[in-house]
Nucleic acid binder design. Structure first.
Lengths: 224, 224
DNA sequence: CCGTATCCAATAAGATACTG
DNA sequence: CAGTATCTTATTGGATACGG
């Protein structure tokens, strides 16, 4: 029975290939399945657990997540690893090549967001919002600015740094930053992109830095 | 009956949305369906007819092509237009915003092609091969080079220009170029990327320019 | 809690034939 | 040529149950 399934699956994979030497077609074979790019996105700031992925991809079912992770693994984009003791939990992490898809995904998102269909009121994950900052950061608005900005988004911590007109972000302890935003990712998105007042998130530390910070991420103009 | 179908389709679209404000998720809703990016790719050098698209997307079925074109149109990526007389045939063309996806698609292809799964022996369309040149062009190898290179790929003509370390290409009459490559796209791909001898394609004009030209497109190193 | 396995209903894709 | 219509097959997601 299992063998039958494997056979069937292989046949499907063969059938569903594009048989096209174009890199775009290959990309679709690698990460073209439903949910696959979003799973990869969630790994762009470091390893995550199955349940975290599930929580940050609302709508995906456990079996589809299992399947996608398996496919991404066999294609060399994701690795299944064990976190060092004492945690010793199993996590999924993007391979170096998988991580190299990040700039492409950011460019794709930046392109798509010009659609009139973009609805900023929907759910966003912590990773999404951090990636969006990397994507939308406008160096010209950060002239002369530098500082470390911490984020506590649900259970994940990040630290961003602005210096010399560059923006960088990685996971880390937000507490050793000049200012810390704490809240759900959607609230931070509201402040950054929805014109919501700073008060809807918890801000501790250098409040004037926070006020300036939230102006650095202009959305591209809509088409249509 | 038609009304029923429309209702059903809308429900599906709602169900299959990601409900995620992330730009990547939106991109998937716009061009995430099977074949959609390849359909758009085929329009990146100008309008095409239904039958051309079908021919250059081997494996797509007519009904799926119809459906994708309709979806891309309603999402603002593609327009259905009439070619000016005397041709007066119906064609599909990318909108300006659709065309802006081109650099993203090139970056995606460049990333994907590093996979050990890439098989350069498969079918390539004329548009694919022209896009691949834009993607893989290495300015440092074109030092001091300039010239116009024509392509007659199946029924499509293109003219590329190299000047000051830049590469540009558009559809046009290849005959007023310094050298012209004529053949099937796959043969040109073999010469550019597969190390095949120049002789497998038809080259007319400045042969030494052709010899230099085919060295300008290095493939990125494989992962793994 | 971390997944995996299985079954089911709904849809999407594929193959093929056919029409204006 | 430019698509529709129809039928079959494959994939998806949801529910549920199960093993470590």
């Amino acid at each position: 029975m299992k063998l039958q399934k494997l056979t069937k699956q292989r046949k499907n994979e063969e059938k569903r290939r594009y048989e096209d030497a174009c890199g775009v077609a290959l990309a679709l074979e690698l990460i073209g399945e439903r949910w696959a790019p979003l799973v990869l996105r969630e790994l762009m700031f470091g390893p995550r657990r199955f349940s975290e992925l599930r929580a940050d991809l609302p709508g995906i079912s456990a079996n589809v997540l299992t399947q996608r992770l398996g496919e991404l693994e066999e294609r060399g984009l994701v690795r299944k690893t064990q976190l060092p003791p004492p945690a010793s939990v199993q996590v999924y992490e993007a391979t170096p090549w998988g991580l190299e898809a990040a700039p492409v995904m950011r460019a794709l998102g930046k392109w798509a967001v010009r659609s009139p269909r973009h609805n900023p009121g929907q759910f966003v994950s912590a990773v999404s919002i951090m990636m969006s900052m990397q994507t939308m950061f406008d160096a010209s608005r950060a002239e002369g600015l530098s500082g470390r900005i911490g984020f506590r988004l649900g259970s994940l911590g990040f630290v961003a740094e602005i210096r010399d007109g560059t923006f960088s972000a990685q996971r880390g302890d937000p507490d050793d930053a000049d200012v810390v935003f704490t809240g759900e990712p959607g609230q931070v998105a509201g402040v950054l992109y929805g014109g919501a007042p700073l008060e809807i998130v918890d801000v501790t530390g250098d409040r004037s830095l926070a006020k300036r910070f939230v102006t650095l991420f202009p959305l591209p103009p809509k088409v249509d």
